[in-house]
Write a protein that binds this DNA or RNA. Structure first.
Length: 469
RNA sequence: GCGCCUCUAGCUCAAUUGGCAGAGCAAUAGACUCUUAAUCUACAGGUUCCGGGUUCAAGUCCCGGGGGGCGUACCA
């Protein structure tokens, strides 16, 4: 069969709309309504001089009803392969057996599938193939398509929600001359004309705070960040982060913002705040619990830890919980390690874990009451970090001291430590108002909303080894 | 990085103690005017992930390598 492929095609209906508008008509009746639809032929049942097909578009599936006396080039229509793209024009009707259909009174081949489609019932089960050939997976794994539609809606709703609260969306550089804003190893690249080493950003944080200094009182950015670290069910080397900064706010304000945003997304996208997740549910209704790291460690382990206890005591406690203790760890780092080892993964319903040690929080402001701690929190859901936020450090002198401490840690061999960013310090020296800041991992948020358990199921094209050829 | 599991036709899966590599779907050729994972007939489809080894004989056992999954470690 050789057919000319048209240059354009103009559908005026979708499968889902047809089901919504005509789903209730009587069996064996015709509507008199002519429509044009397009999609892939997913199933085909030729029965002599009558053929049935199942057409799938981006919304749903609908049956094609093709009597030999009505359908032009009937033999060619019967020769279509599963996976072929076609456009169909005809009347909306329901078969005697009660299946809503479009009678094929005209049709065009829009693309032939030269490769056989996967098993029409089982689809693709091999994870690797699903990720590498997402263009096939999206057709044969309905849940896969649904997750990415949900992801798109979640990001769109988030944008609207923030804009309604006066936030301005901005774009800041992905190439950073100095990697900063988080503790992570960066990817490195090189600009030829400048003959300069550049880093793919590990966080937009320091640029967004420059904008706060620049007078944008509420800014946010949703974009990709890159971290040259391990891959797992929760880590992809490139992932999507929402960061926002709100002038005149502190970390308590940001907690309210987070719980309200997540509650809003759950209600809009899942219809409830009781999110099914695996064989349990997660209740994301606001307000979420607030509890300090120290408090939570004691709650789960019975062990009291304090920043001002003798460091050897802290080291002993850490070893007791099988934490790998390095000599360079101060008390703050030890407490964080103990928390991550014993407590984080057992927290299920949302909790804001507050008051992180200053030692491990180089960009957060000193706690207004607790010596040695900062006004920082992480939102933990299902044992995983959803977000990280703080009352931003606004004192340039203190920030310089923290940077220099980080630089020393880097010199001591910590390749995730920060380096001094003089331009950021200059911006702070011009004055940064009290500011609350937030980073949310969008991929992990979508995992929660979509009830999926691996980040690769919420990233269209996850990072994989190159395919062997 | 470490441990366990896995890899057979385009897809989904079989193959007993080591004994001729098979089936369904898809594809190809045909039959069939209410099917819907249509059905029926016929035909075709293979570097069993790769490379070694043991054996009369290897998809199967052993060694090495590769891809993938899970767990763990790492990871703001």
């Amino acid at each position: 069969m050789s057919r000319t492929i048209p240059y354009r095609f103009e559908p005026n209906a979708t499968a889902a709309a047809l089901h919504a508008e005509h789903g209730e008509i009587e069996d064996g009746t015709e509507t008199g309504v002519q429509v044009t639809i397009a999609g892939r032929l997913m199933l085909r049942r030729v029965q002599g001089k009558l053929a049935f097909g199942t057409l799938q578009d981006s919304t749903a599936r609908i049956q094609l009803f093709a009597p030999g006396k009505v359908t032009p080039d009937f033999a060619d229509f019967c020769d279509l392969n599963i996976g072929d793209w076609i456009g169909v024009t005809g009347e909306v009707m329901k078969t005697r057996k009660g299946e809503l259909s479009v009678k094929v009174e005209g049709w065009s081949l829009l693309a032939a599938a030269a490769r056989p489609f996967p098993d029409k019932f089982h689809g693709i089960t091999d994870q690797d193939t699903r990720y590498r050939q997402r263009y096939v997976d999206l057709w044969v794994t309905p849940e896969s398509r649904e997750v990415f539609v949900l992801r798109s809606k979640a990001i769109s709703l988030t944008r609207r929600w923030l804009e309604d609260r006066g936030f301005l969306e901005v774009e800041t550089p992905m190439f950073h001359p100095i990697p900063g804003g988080a503790l992570a190893r960066p990817f490195t690249t090189h600009h030829n004309a400048l003959d300069q080493e550049l880093f793919l950003r590990i966080a937009p944080e320091l640029y967004l705070k420059r904008l706060t200094a620049g007078g944008f009182e509420r800014v946010f950015e949703i974009g990709r960040v890159f971290r040259n670290e391990g891959m797992s069910t929760r880590h992809n080397p490139e992932f999507t982060m929402l960061e926002l900064y709100q002038a005149y706010a502190d970390y308590a304000d940001i907690m309210v913002l987070v719980e309200e945003l997540v509650e809003h997304l759950a209600l809009e996208l899942v219809g409830t705040t009781e999110l099914p997740y695996g064989d349990k549910t997660i209740n994301v209704a606001a307000p979420w619990r607030r509890a300090s790291m120290i408090e939570l460690i004691e709650e789960t382990t019975g062990q009291v830890v304090r920043l001002d206890m003798p460091i050897d005591d802290l080291r002993a406690i850490a070893r007791e919980f099988h934490v790998e203790v390095k000599d360079s760890y101060g008390p703050g780092k030890l407490i964080l390690e103990i928390y991550e080892k014993t407590t984080e993964s057992v927290l299920w319903d949302p909790v804001f874990v507050t008051d992180y040690p200053k030692e491990v929080s180089p960009l957060s402001r000193d706690h207004r009451e607790l010596e040695g701690f900062t006004e920082r929190f992480e939102g933990i859901i299902a044992g995983r970090e959803l977000c990280n936020a703080f009352s931003e450090l606004i004192d340039p002198v203190e920030q310089r001291a923290r940077f220099e401490d980080q630089a020393q840690q880097k010199a001591d061999g910590d390749d995730e430590a920060m380096v001094v960013d003089e331009d950021y310090l200059r911006a702070m020296e011009y004055g940064l108002p009290p500011t609350g800041g937030l980073g949310i991992g969008i991929d992990r948020l979508v995992m929660l909303l979509a009830n999926v358990h691996t980040i690769r199921d919420v990233v269209l094209f996850p990072t994989l080894r190159p395919e062997a050829t």
